[in-house]
Every structure is written in C-alpha cells, then in structure tokens.
C-alpha cells in the first residue's frame, strides 16, 4: 500500500511546527524519518496516522485521503506504534495483541475463529507466543515493543507507522526490533533517533529540521558529513562499511563544528 503526503502543514500558536512536507512510501518500502529533537517528526507522524488534522495539505493511502475514511476503516489499513504510555491497566499479552482486531469487529461482535487465528499467528511471528498469558506491564522494554508489533500484525494493516520504536532499548534489542520490522513486508514509515540504525535498515530517509524537509533519498545521499553538520551541529565522518555496504556514521564531538558550511 502506498502512503503519500502533500504540502502537510501544522501550525500551533502561529508557529509552523510542520511546514509543507511532501513525502511518499512505496508499497513494501521501509522509510525513515530523521531529524533533531523538536524538529516536528512526531507531529508529522500524528498527521499521518490521523489523530492530528493538518492545517493544510493531505495524507493519502493508495490515493484516498485518510480523513475521508472513518477511524475504523483507517485502522484496518494502517497500524501505529506511538510513544504513548500504555497505561496503568494490567492486560495480558494475548489481550493486548487481540486489541489489534478491534477495527475488524462489528458492533457486538464475538471473537471469531478468524480473530483468534490472527492473534495466534501474530504472537508466533514476533516470537512472543510463550509470553501470551503474561501481564504486559511486567515485560521488558524489548518484549513490550515486540508485543505491540504483534498487535499491529493482528491488525492486518498494510502500512505501519512507528514513532521511535527502539527508544530505551539496548543495542541487541534495537537490532532485533528493526530486523523484525524490516521482515514484515508492509510499507513502513518510522521516526528514528539513531542515525546508524536508520542508515542500516531504511531504504530511503527523509530528514526534517524545524518542520521543513531538508533532504531525502537513500541513506548514502542523506547522511553526508555536510548535512549532518548543518542539521545536527556535530562533526561527523561517514564511511561505507566494506561488508554491509551501508553508511556508518562516526561522530567527532570534540572537534568544533563551527558554523554550518
């Protein structure tokens, strides 16, 4: 499924938080959204997943505006892992994952065999079937993210929107989650903090700064020392790794960055 935005803008208190952002995610593509803190990544994603109505511009799935669809119809096409804290209430892992079936169920609907199968398949797919009866609140950070990905799978959406899915995870679990996401064969757009992760996993990157799109393209084109220095105000060296053929970024914080070139 193709995700597209055109001229997306969001203003708050006369400030443009997101300014004229046009981007697209092709079917099956893994697109990263990068940018410094407060650059408008989350606001942009919230407009994409239809909880923030844009001041201008539009978001479309396969050419159809998300605001033309109901929340339910939209939820069958798009699943979201937001940064919202998941509350104080104690749900089991299975219950948590089966919430992904919510948009598929009609009013008053019982859980059908189809729902149970989708939940069981999702649990297996992300490797948390053995945790099914555990309480979600007692899981580790990496396990929680995997369960939430299972929920997105149970939702059977073909677009996945992620807001910093590797936040607070250690290195091993960061790679585990990213590998899992890349293997899902759905269209993905993910806000990412860690540039090396973005470089390694994403097909294309969009870099935003102060709400504006400043660069986009394959990681090698976006993550150049010049762009990193201009946007992040840190000196960096970028080298293609001989084995992975992916750009790796080394930051050189002790050397003065100087004014942007």
């Amino acid at each position: 499924m193709r995700l597209e935005t055109d001229g997306l803008r969001w203003e708050k208190a006369a400030r443009r938080i997101v300014d004229e952002v046009s981007l697209h995610v092709a079917p099956g593509e893994f697109v990263g959204l990068i940018g410094p803190n407060g650059s408008g990544k989350s606001s942009l994603l919230r407009m994409i997943y239809r909880v923030l109505r844009p001041s201008a511009g539009w978001v479309a799935l396969d050419g159809q505006s998300v605001w033309r669809l109901s929340a339910r119809e939209n939820a069958r096409r798009m699943a979201v892992l937001a940064q919202e804290n998941d509350g104080e209430f104690d749900f089991s892992v299975r219950e948590m994952v089966s919430m992904g079936r919510t948009p598929h169920q009609a009013f008053l609907a019982q859980e059908h065999a189809e729902d149970r199968q989708a939940v069981a398949a999702a649990l297996l797919r992300v490797g948390v079937a053995h945790l099914a009866e555990r309480s979600f609140l007692t899981l580790s950070g990496g396990e929680k993210q995997r369960v939430l990905i299972a929920r997105a799978l149970a939702q059977e959406a073909r677009v996945l929107v992620l807001d910093e899915p590797t936040n607070h995870l250690d290195v091993y679990h960061q790679f585990e989650i990213m590998t899992l996401i890349r293997g899902l064969k759905v269209s993905v757009i993910a806000a990412l903090h860690e540039l090396n992760l973005a470089a390694h996993y994403c097909d294309r990157l969009y870099l935003i700064d102060a709400g504006r799109l400043v660069a986009h393209g394959p990681p090698v084109e976006v993550l150049t020392p010049g762009i990193i220095r201009a946007v992040y105000r840190v000196r960096a060296e970028v080298a293609l790794h001989p084995v992975t053929r992916k750009p790796g970024i080394h930051f050189l914080p002790d050397e003065a960055a100087g004014p942007p070139a």
Binding site: V80, F89, M99
Partner: peptide, 14 residues
C-alpha cells in the same frame, strides 16, 4: 479496552 491504552492508541485502533 482500547480507551484504557490512551486516546491516540484508541484512535489508531479505530
């Protein structure tokens, strides 16, 4: 159930 997860999550679950 979805509401307990927060408004945004509920919205994204339809």
């Amino acid at each position: 159930d979805a509401l307990l997860l927060g408004d945004e999550t509920a919205a994204t679950l339809g």
